[in-house]
Amino acid sequence: MKRQLIILLLLPACFAACRKTDTSRGPVPVPQEVPAFFPTPAANIDNPLTQEGIELGRRLFYDKRLSGLNQLSCASCHHPDLAFTDGVALSQIGASGLPLHRNAPALFNMAWNSNGFFWDGGSTNLESQAFAPLTSPDEMHQNLFQLIDELKAVPDYVRRFEEAFSDGEISTGNIARALAQFQRTLVSAGSRYDRYRRREEASLNAQELQGLQLVQQRCASCHDGELFTDNKYHNNGIDADFSNEDAEGIYQGRFRVTRNPADLGKFRTASLRNLLFTAPYMHDGRFATLQEVLDHYDHGVKESTTLDPQMRQRAGQAGIPLDNNEKQAIIKYLATLTDTAFARNPRFAAP
């Protein structure tokens, strides 16, 4: 695990040192989709979107050749109908058969994430993050040199890499770039809330509007804006003791990457979008329902030195006060953030 973390931290520098995509010839870049009210995402100068790259990335995402035993694809743990999660707390379908230490995160609106990937931000961009699941002995356990040989033996892939990248190479860098291009097209902005926001739907009902107001008052410090996440790392009080060094500090959150004691127990803020698809919740999937999540914030927050100040909404005491009616209103509102069209979009399905 430590070796993988070192590789992930070094990969951005490797990508920067690589020759940038030559856009003067080859595939023509296409614009990133930006829904109404969304902020403008950072430009991807080194890996611009192209139709050829996106389609290649989609095919790779669903191809079991990407795993060492040719039994798993990226989609094995990221199902489109579950907003690209897998519906379990800790998957154990990887090469080792052992339970993973982290819940499979949802994959949508990642073009707006410029503050690290994984629950602890162990990778700085979508391109480099691909190598962790690909090479992990507990996940896909792929030898990257063997993967290149496997893909080169497929004439369709040879043609598609030639069409997608100006150098035409089947390489680890281009594999990662194609996967990243596909994932940046996974845009979710078609929920009832979005239609209400764009005035395409008359209104939310009274209970849903109450929930919206409560989320804005009690939760927006972390789940803000149209993305419903600040893309930062917070200790939300699910644990109090971070001295356990099992799994090489993987339970210590952002601290595992920064080694800053102020980051102990801090994990990435998950978006509130598509929560009806993405249960169970938290970085280890410990909460099965939204009711359990809200009960935690109401009376289950644990004290620690790095607890986020926003977790102290009871006159400085740990917890966010919510009565049962308020919890139900929030749950009803969160349901309006469900994007069924996204989960059923044929552009994101297996080719």
Rank of each mutant, 00 (worst) to 15 (best):
V30E: 04
N143P: 07
H141L: 13
T124H: 09
A83P: 12
S96I: 02
D295W: 11
D120T: 10
N324K: 12
E201N: 08
Q129K: 10
H101L: 13
R286G: 00
F182Q: 05
E245H: 05
A17Q: 10
P29Y: 00
N236S: 04
C219H: 01
F15M: 11
L227F: 01
M282P: 00
A343V: 03
M1Y: 04
D230L: 09
L100F: 04
Y251M: 14
A130M: 13
G249I: 06
P155M: 00
C77H: 01
N235E: 05
T21F: 08
D156Q: 15
N115R: 11
A262Q: 15
N231H: 13
D81P: 01
L5Q: 11
L212M: 12
F342E: 02
R59H: 08
K327H: 01
R273Y: 05
Q4W: 12
G211I: 05
F61H: 07
L69P: 02
Y297E: 00
A164W: 00
Q142R: 11
I6F: 06
F165L: 09
Q181F: 00
L72Q: 08
Q291L: 08
S114L: 07
G53I: 07
T336A: 02
N236I: 12
D81E: 15
F145K: 15
F267E: 00
Y297T: 01
